[in-house]
Design a protein around this nucleic acid. Structure first.
Lengths: 226, 226
DNA sequence: AAAAATATGTTGAATTTTCAACAAATAGTG
DNA sequence: CACTATTTGTTGAAAATTCAACATATTTTT
């Protein structure tokens, strides 16, 4: 168990908690580690939605199984990332998705109730971990909100400009590099890659943007009309 | 202030907290009420993202202003609903959207820090409100996740079937009524209303679904292949 | 430096969506 | 019940997207 505390220290769930305290906390929270062979289930659809986890090493996937039985990968998580927290903190009874190991992995599993209900011995860092959990869940909401903003647009051009606009705002600069290649950008925008490439080509010709690979410049910004 | 406690009691933020305790809590949390004329700003883009609110009466909107200056309504909230909590609980510094009153409204504003940091006099219900806040933020994440699942699909048919599939699962029945009319459903799926109507018509002819107004039946379910 | 692998751009045909305009059905009102 | 307003369905043309197939560019490997 102690072996993992270095990883955990980097996880947002344990941010601001000193390495030394983590082992005691894990005991207090009833945490358990799980070694998962590639392909094995960590949490299954229908399980009670009460656990959240931290990836210690390896890689895991969130897999959705829809009404018609089609499986689709909803998200992937790697070392130090937290999973299952949105389900465990909401009041749904059972898991609507599978969590599976896509590589040989080890994960730390925690019961959400034990986190949200302050323990009897009121350990010092309990408040911090609740605070961290809230921040993680809120951050995910923010991310989702941004993505909805983007994919709600009807055309590839609008989707792209919406996405690039938020990146430009965050960068505080009209020229910036996005963290995606073309295929990844197309996946994020939920459009066809080749269609995206050709649309980018058009927009460059029209002088709306400049683009080389993952580096973009937004031109034609309206004079600030706020 | 006391006047509002009846409303607040119905808000998910104060769930499980007895009416009598709410006035004391509001004091402890430094809550303040705001009377907002239609069209006036409650929280503005660029304000520090530290407040969350509860609509006491009236109606408010979350309005996004994109890079190019286009305004769009992202969400609407009515009595007893909570707003701003995702921003205030994440660690972004400033508000990326405006919150405005779309009708004459009154709202309760609370500082998120005062909620997340247990107060010195450790009032009994403080833990409950943190727990409620976590649940609210998580529920919003769930909602967003479901919507992303839906609007990520490329065709109107897939979007509709994805949405109907989740409703059928939640209803536990292949026949169910959705809480939207055609226009609202089209808005949720982010597609053209008339196109949606005609697609529904086709799907009925093909025997995939049955539909009358907001009442749907899913046919052709695959034998359970889990 | 050449070869192989990967990423990006380009094109045209088929499919799908949007858009506008209107028809039909339903709900609401006096 | 008749009238009006609202919602839903239908249609065809225009616009946009997907898809497949291939060309070009860039990166990685040997």
């Amino acid at each position: 168990m102690k072996f993992f505390c270095n990883y955990l220290h980097e996880s947002p769930l344990f941010a601001g908690i000193s390495k030394n305290c983590i082992p005691a906390m894990l005991g207090c929270l009833g945490a358990r580690t799980l070694e998962c062979k590639k392909g094995s289930a960590i949490i299954s659809i229908g399980d009670r939605a009460e656990n959240l986890g931290v990836v210690l090493n390896g890689k895991i996937q969130m897999v959705n199984l829809d009404y018609y039985g089609n499986r689709s990968i909803v998200a992937e998580m790697e070392s130090s990332q937290v999973f299952g927290e949105v389900f465990a903190c909401s009041d749904i009874a059972v898991m609507p998705v599978d969590i599976v190991a896509s590589e040989d992995s080890s994960v730390l599993l925690l019961n959400a109730r034990r986190i949200t209900q302050v323990c009897t011995n009121a350990c010092t860092f309990h408040r911090q971990i609740i605070f961290n959990l809230l921040k993680i869940v809120a951050a995910k909401g923010l991310m989702f909100g941004q993505k909805i903003n983007v994919v709600s647009k009807r055309t590839t051009r609008e989707k792209l400009l919406t996405y690039l606009g938020t990146v430009a705002e965050q960068a505080g600069d009209d020229t910036f590099t996005i963290p995606y290649n073309r295929q990844e950008l197309a996946d994020y925008l939920e459009v066809d890659r080749s269609g995206l490439s050709s649309e980018i080509g058009k927009m460059c010709k029209e002088g709306i943007i400049r683009c080389h690979r993952s580096n973009f410049t937004l031109l034609h910004k309206q004079p600030d009309c706020r």
